[in-house]
Each structure stands twice: as C-alpha cells, then as structure tokens.
C-alpha cells in the first residue's frame, strides 16, 4: 500500500475494544425520503457509502440539517452538471417528503470524525471519503464488530464540514426512533428554495 492509498479495515479490527470510543446518540435529525418509501426506509443499496446488499445490516442515513440532507441526496447529480445549466426536476422534489427522526433512547455510535477514534481504528481523515468499495468494507467490519454498535457519525462529502449519521438496523432500532413526515413539502419549503436560489439551480 502506498502513501495516500485508501485504507482497508485492519485485520484485527474486531479485537480492538471500542468501549471508550462509543458515544450515545440522541436528538433530532432529518431524512429527505421518497414519499412512497416506508416510514423507516432502511437501505441496502450499493449506491451509498456504507450500504450494500451483502452487508450484515441495512442502513438509515440521517442528517442533522435539512441543507445537508438535500445535498447528500442530490449533490452528486448537481455537481456533475455544468455550473451554467444546473437545474433540478420539480417532479423529483415533489416526490420527496421531509421526515423528522428523533432518537429517543441513546443509540451507541462511533464518531468517525473524531481524530483519536480514527487513529484507534487504523483509519485516517480520507478513509471514509474513499471509493465505496473501501467504505462499504469498513461499514461491514464495523457492523460485525463484537461491540454491536448502532451506527456511525461521519463527515458529509457533499456538504462539508457538516456531519451525517448512518444507523445500522438492529433488533431494537425501531423502538429507539420516532419518525414522522413533516410539512412543508419540498417545493413549499423556504430552506430548499433558498438553496436553489443561492446556488443558481433552476427548477425545471
């Protein structure tokens, strides 16, 4: 492995005691969901950073701010578009709803934005921004760790330096979460409309 190469999880990760590295996650988060998706829409799609059909747990991606949730969902496509012709489909936004996710009881998570934790795991600041092949391997290793953590906090790639949360589906996950669909709809939401206006993204 050369300097700067993506770091795979170390072979002894399962033997590293995560006890001191585990934090309790509580509070309110947002999810920008498809309106037809189940209320708790766990994902195992391979197109996301920490999920894959072959991994032991499905994942629920959350963001503490609507702005981050928007960019994490649509940032990849908008970044690919020429700056002078950026637009988003009204239909796509109309198909979405805001879900408020409240973590009622503390969920045990590892914060992958914390430098001592990264060093303890054998990772670095770039590890969890690497190609999905690597980040998904890390997700699998963390899901399978004997500490049975409930998820991770990680840095947003599309709206840095904000943080995001990936919860792993465990037997008790559903009872720890209170999820509700919240108004306004995205096309009526000043937060979304202001993002579009500020970044010169048109509605088509």
């Amino acid at each position: 492995m050369s300097r700067g190469d993506p770091t795979p999880p170390p072979a002894d990760l399962a033997e590293r005691d995560l006890g001191d590295r585990i934090r309790l996650l509580r509070g309110a988060y947002w999810r920008f969901s498809h309106r037809n998706a189940p209320l708790i829409d766990w994902s195992d799609g391979a197109g996301a950073r920490f999920s894959n059909p072959d991994l032991p747990c499905k994942v629920l991606y959350l963001a503490p701010f609507k702005v981050t949730a928007f960019w994490e969902r649509f940032g990849e496509d908008l970044r690919d578009q020429d700056l002078t012709t950026r637009a988003i489909s009204e239909r796509i936004l109309a198909d979405r709803v805001w879900k408020a996710v409240r973590v009622k009881t503390g969920l045990r998570i590892v914060d992958l934005t914390d430098n001592p934790t990264l060093r303890y795991l054998g990772a670095d600041g770039a590890t969890f921004f690497a190609a999905y092949e690597f980040t998904q391997r890390w997700a699998g290793a963390l899901m399978s760790h004997p500490a049975a953590i409930d998820g991770i906090v990680y840095g947003s790639r599309l709206n840095p330096p904000k943080k995001c949360v990936a919860l792993f589906e465990r037997a008790h996950s559903a009872t720890a979460l209170k999820i509700s669909v919240r108004p306004p709809l995205p096309l009526d939401d000043p937060v979304i409309l202001r993002i579009l206006a500020r970044e010169r993204i048109r509605l088509v």
Partner: peptide, 23 residues
C-alpha cells in the same frame, strides 16, 4: 421576501424555463 415560497418558486421556474429554451 426570500422566505415567501411562492415568490421564490416563480423566480426559479422562470429561470428554468429560460434555461430549457436555451438548451
């Protein structure tokens, strides 16, 4: 003014219409 969704939406739609015409 920017917190009035209908106003902002109209602006964004007009910009979108102009963009599609250009494309």
């Amino acid at each position: 003014l920017s917190t009035r969704p209908a106003w902002l939406r109209t602006i964004l739609r007009n910009r979108g219409g102009a963009l599609v015409s250009k494309l």
